[in-house]
Amino acid sequence: MRIGVLLSGCGIGDGSQIEEVILTYLALDKYKVDYICIAPNKKQFHTVNHLDEQIEPKEERNVLIESARIGRGKIRALDHIHVEELDGLIIPGGIGLFKNLSNYVMDKEQFVLDEQVDTLIKCMHQSQKPIGAMCGGIVLLARCLGSTEGPLNLCTSHGAYKQLLEMNHIIVEELEADEILVDTYHKIVTTPAFLGTQDLYKMMGGVDKLVKALLTL
C-alpha cells in the first residue's frame, strides 16, 4: 500500500503545517505504510517571514522545492504522479492550501482549486480510493467534492469554516482534536488537528486514528 501526502510548501504561513505533516508521517510509519509526498511544481503565491510573520515581497520560492524540505527525500511533482500509483491520499493543513493549492485568499467563498490538485482529488474519489484530510485540508476537500458528490460528512472544531463547509453541501460535525469522522460511503476520514487544539499530543491521537481508519476503507 502507498499513500500520497499532499504538501503545499513548508511552514504554516505560506505552506503546509509542519506539525501536522510530521504527525502524519509518524502514524504512517507506525502502521508500516509506504508513502510518497506530492506537491505542485509552481511558483509560491508569496513568501512569509515566519519570524515576524511579514510578507517578503522580493523573495520568490517554488512550492515543490519548499515542500521537499519536509518531504524526507520521498517527494514527486504532482504532474508526475498517476492515481494508479496511490492507494489513498492524505491532505494536511497549512495556509499554503489557501495560497498555493487554491485561490481562497483572493476569492474567499468563490475560490477554486489548482487544476492539478482538483484533478488529483476527484480522480482519487472516482477511483474509490480513501482520502484523509485535516485542518484546512477539509476545506479543500469540501470545495472539490461537495458540490458534485455531496452531501459529504466532514468535521470541524470550534465552528471553524462551518459556514463555508455548509455552503458546499457538507454535513458538518463538531469534533475534538483527538477524534475522527469517517464518511464510509465516500471513503473520507477527517480530523480537526489545529482547528481543535494547539496541543500536539492530543492532535496526534486524531491523526493516528485518521491513518488507521483510512487503511480499513
Rank of each mutant, 00 (worst) to 15 (best):
S16E: 03
R76M: 12
I81H: 06
G93T: 05
I36C: 11
I36N: 02
A27Q: 06
Y35M: 01
D29Q: 09
I70V: 04
Q44N: 06
F45R: 12
D79A: 11
P92W: 06
P40Y: 14
K42M: 00
E109D: 12
I90V: 10
M106H: 06
L51P: 14
R76A: 14
Q110H: 15
I22S: 12
K32C: 09
N100A: 09
V21G: 00
I75L: 03
E59K: 14
S16L: 00
H80G: 09
N49I: 14
G96C: 01
V48Y: 08
R69K: 10
V21T: 10
V83E: 09
D52F: 13
H82I: 11
K99V: 01
E56R: 14
L51Q: 15
D52A: 03
M106K: 09
S102K: 12
H46V: 13
G15F: 08
K32P: 01
G15T: 04
G71C: 07
L23R: 07
L101R: 05
Q54Y: 11
D107Y: 00
G94E: 00
H50T: 15
T24K: 08
G94A: 02
D87L: 04
L64W: 10
E53M: 15
G93H: 05
I18K: 08
T24F: 06
E109R: 04
Q54T: 15
D87T: 01
D34V: 02
D52I: 14
K99W: 04
K43Q: 15
Y35L: 02
D29W: 13
D114S: 10
R61W: 11
K99H: 12
N103R: 10
D34M: 00
E19N: 08
V105F: 03
H50S: 14
I55F: 07
G88S: 06
G73S: 03
V21N: 02
I65W: 07
R69P: 02
